[in-house]
């Protein structure tokens, strides 16, 4: 069996439902992530995305199942798994720079002050924060700038796995666009493995190598793993013209709009539930670049 860099094996999470019974959020969910991969997870609210994220971050323990990274089961939070929270989670009494050095100092405890400072400044510059701005407190920064600081803090720690929990959820559409590009730039320079929660289909297509689709809860599961067959580097204004873009987007919209409900509530009956791999690539079968309407070609491969 193929060994994934990060493998989630038969993860189950139940909560007490308040009426004496239990509520199963997801059951026996299994999937894997490769090293250097950028994976987004899409699904409706309440399907357990954030629960999976918290388990991966080590902030909460699953009811059963294991998460293995590099073949070793993980437990508790670790510097190997960096997290960018939706609400930035910057410490408001520290300046932007101090927020980053806070992380760097925790990661590289034997570094000198100068090394820490230089490293932090470098990563802040990567997300476009330079000069006086980095000495401001978070309350003096816009939402977009705060999230950049948060991203810089996470990348500066060079974790083996970077977890992004709806990082752009609280930003306006234009700011989101710029920061997505900053994120892509930093990611392409660092070859970081990224696992990201999002609600935004276009964002997922722009950023991800693969999109995991979750059905609605309770008894949610990761039903499909959709490969994004659009070559990198991707630019927002250009990928929309790629023949695969709308085919993939339609597939995702159909899933979230209809199939996530139809597939909801299926119990695992003790089986490990792995996502089905979906690859949509219109360029493979059509070497001529002339765009003309053709039926969507779906290829389903069992993963």
């Amino acid at each position: 069996m193929h060994k994934h860099f990060l493998s989630i094996e038969r993860l189950t999470q139940t909560f007490p439902d308040g009426a004496g019974g239990t509520l199963t959020v997801f059951e026996n969910a299994s999937f894997g992530i490769e090293k250097g991969e950028f994976v987004c997870i899409l699904g409706h609210s309440g399907c357990g995305k954030s629960t999976i994220m918290n388990v991966l971050a080590g902030l909460s323990d699953p009811t059963s199942g294991v998460v293995k990274m590099d073949g070793v089961a993980v437990s508790g939070p670790s510097l190997d798994r960096g997290v960018v929270f939706q609400n930035y989670s910057l410490l408001p009494w520290l300046s932007a720079l101090k927020n980053v050095t806070f992380g760097v100092k925790a990661r590289y405890r034997d570094w000198s002050r100068e090394q820490v400072l230089e490293h932090a400044t470098k990563y802040l510059a990567m997300v476009g924060l330079e000069g006086d701005v980095i000495h401001r407190k978070p309350s003096q920064l816009s939402g977009g700038m705060r999230q950049r600081v948060s991203i810089a803090r996470a990348f500066a720690n060079q974790p083996k796995l970077l977890l992004l929990d709806e990082p752009f959820g609280a930003l306006d559409a234009l700011t989101r666009g710029t920061i997505q590009e900053e994120l892509l730039k930093v990611w392409s320079k660092t070859e970081q493995t990224v696992f990201m929660i999002t609600h935004d289909i276009d964002e997922a297509i722009l950023l991800a190598d693969r999109i995991l689709l979750m059905t609605n809860g309770p008894f949610a599961r990761v039903a499909e793993s959709v490969e994004i067959t659009i070559p990198r580097p991707r630019i927002r204004t250009e990928i929309v013209n790629h023949p695969n873009y709308y085919a993939i987007r339609n597939h995702l919209v159909q899933f979230l709009g209809k199939r996530s409900k139809e597939l909801a509530g299926q119990r695992s009956e003790g089986e490990s539930q792995s996502p089905e791999t979906v690859r949509i690539d219109l360029t493979e079968n059509a070497p001529d670049p002339e765009p003309k309407p053709r039926p969507t070609h779906l290829q389903a491969v069992n993963g």
Binding site: A57, G58, L59, P77, S78, L79, R81, G82, V83, F85, S89, L91, F102, G103, A106, R107, N157
Partner: peptide
């Protein structure tokens, strides 16, 4: 903020 401390070990 406590989670930030936890994820930074």
């Amino acid at each position: 903020w406590v989670n930030v401390a936890r994820t930074h070990e």
